[in-house]
């Protein structure tokens, strides 16, 4: 087991004088094995993105514990956590917005490598970047461009390549394909599947698209109003949904 969340909760405060509370995530527990893709599905506002951010401690949980690789993340000191960050990364929904618009793609890709000192010398750095580009299906000509000169699919590949540079063990993919066209979506999903197979990376794949999650996940968790209401293998969930909310979601799929 690579990652485990135990009774994870997050409350946000809102309203005048922060007096009202919203429990965005409410006692969520699950685990992800090494090399496993866990799909997380729910409607907008169900708290699925918050779960993703909590797992990486990009948000501080109100309650609960997170274990990563046997260590309890919530109790680590800042410095220790920083070292672990290399192993746990995130891919966002809007690739263009997650790249610095004023940096050329080369600089964007060199950033994580330099931050963790993963290549000594310029030539090694370039070599590493070219290797990453090839893995995600881009070419050298893209390096001199700015993010706005890339298509959505290409920008998402760059975002994936940056994550890959750190050789992470766990990646949260937060709606990575919801802004992309179907044919480009298939390319990115294929790439994620390849990373799982070849690098044994585990994913939390967050999406509202049941068809996508069904196709890519090893297990699926269904979220409603901050709680996981059903968790299981795709075939079981789609052929024999147990929870009424899961049934409701599956019934809302538009069939071709």
């Amino acid at each position: 087991m690579l990652l485990m969340a135990e009774n994870l909760s997050k409350e946000f405060f809102k309203g005048r004088l922060n007096k009202s509370r919203i429990r965005a995530v409410d006692g969520v527990s699950f685990s992800i094995n090494q090399g496993e893709i866990m799909g997380l599905v729910g409607e907008s506002g169900s708290g699925k993105s918050t779960v993703g951010r909590l797992l990486l401690l990009l948000l501080e949980p109100t309650e609960g514990r997170i274990y990563f690789n046997g260590k309890e993340l919530t109790r680590l000191r800042k410095k220790e956590l920083q070292n672990l960050r290399k192993d746990m990364q995130i891919i966002f929904q809007h690739p263009q917005e997650s790249l610095n618009p004023r940096m050329k793609i080369y600089e964007s890709m060199a950033e994580p490598i330099r931050l963790y000192g993963l290549a000594d010398g310029k030539s090694r750095e370039k070599e590493e970047i070219l290797k990453l580009l090839e893995t995600v299906g881009l070419t050298e000509e893209h390096l001199e461009r700015y993010p706005h000169e890339l298509s959505g699919g290409q920008a998402q590949r760059v975002a994936i390549a940056r994550v890959l540079a750190l050789k992470p063990k766990f990646v949260v993919a937060d709606e990575p394909t919801s802004m992309l066209d179907v044919s480009v979506q298939a390319q990115i999903l294929k790439l994620i599947k390849k990373l799982q197979r070849e690098y044994k990376i585990s994913f939390l794949f967050i999406s509202h698209d049941l068809e996508v999650v069904r196709a890519i996940s090893d297990r699926i968790a269904i979220m409603q109003k901050g709680k996981i209401v059903e968790l299981g293998e795709p075939e079981q969930i789609f052929s024999m949904p147990r929870h009424p909310y899961t049934k409701y979601l599956i019934n809302s799929i538009l069939n071709l």
Binding site: V182, S183, A186, L189, R214, A215
Partner: peptide
């Protein structure tokens, strides 16, 4: 396009 739908596997 129809073949690249998620239900058909990953055939971009």
């Amino acid at each position: 396009l129809l073949n690249s739908l998620p239900g058909k596997g990953f055939n971009p």
